[in-house]
Simulated scan of single mutants.
Amino acid sequence: MDELEFMRGRVYGADHDDAAPRPGRVYAELVGGPLDGLLLDVTDRTERELRGGVVLPTEIGRHGPGGGAVYAPRGPGDRRFDWRGDVP
Rank of each mutant, 00 (worst) to 15 (best):
L38V: 04
H63F: 09
R22D: 03
V11L: 03
P65K: 13
G32Q: 05
P21K: 05
G53C: 04
P76M: 09
R80L: 03
G37Y: 01
L50E: 11
G52T: 12
L30G: 03
G33E: 04
D86G: 04
E59N: 12
E5Y: 08
R48D: 12
R45A: 15
V70H: 11
T58L: 05
R80G: 05
G24Y: 01
L30H: 00
Y12V: 11
V11R: 04
A69H: 02
G68D: 04
A72V: 06
G33H: 06
R62G: 04
T58I: 06
G53M: 05
R45L: 15
A20T: 04
R62D: 10
W83P: 05
G68R: 13
G24S: 06
R84N: 08
R48C: 14
V55P: 07
L50Y: 06
I60N: 15
Y12N: 12
V11Q: 00
G85A: 04
R8G: 08
E3I: 14
R45P: 10
L4A: 13
P57S: 08
P34W: 15
R10H: 08
D86L: 00
H16G: 15
D36G: 12
R80I: 03
P88W: 02
G77S: 08
R10C: 09
D15I: 00
F6T: 11
L39Q: 02
P88G: 03
R62M: 09
H63E: 07
L38M: 12
D44Y: 07
V70L: 14
L50F: 14
R25K: 04
E47P: 09
H63W: 09
E59W: 06
D15K: 11
L4T: 14
R45C: 07
E59I: 09
R80K: 10
E3Q: 15
R84D: 07
G37F: 00
R62Y: 14
R8C: 05
L4Q: 14
F81D: 00
I60V: 11
G77A: 04
W83L: 08
G13A: 10
L56F: 12
Y27A: 05
D82G: 04
L39F: 00
L50I: 12
G68V: 02
D2R: 10
R62P: 11
M1T: 02
G32L: 11
P34K: 07
R74I: 08
P76F: 12
L56C: 05
G9L: 03
Y27F: 09
G67Y: 02
D44P: 10
M7K: 15
L56H: 10
A28M: 10
D36K: 03
I60Y: 07
D2I: 08
H16V: 15
V87Y: 00
D86N: 00
E47Y: 00
G9H: 01
A72R: 14
A72G: 12
V42F: 00
D44R: 12
D41S: 11
P57E: 03
G67W: 04
V54A: 11
R25G: 00
Y27D: 08
H63D: 09
P57K: 08
L39V: 00
Y27K: 13
G52M: 11
R51A: 11
W83C: 10
R74W: 01
L38N: 06
T46H: 05
L40Q: 11
D82L: 13
V11C: 07
G66Q: 03
G24P: 08
G13D: 03
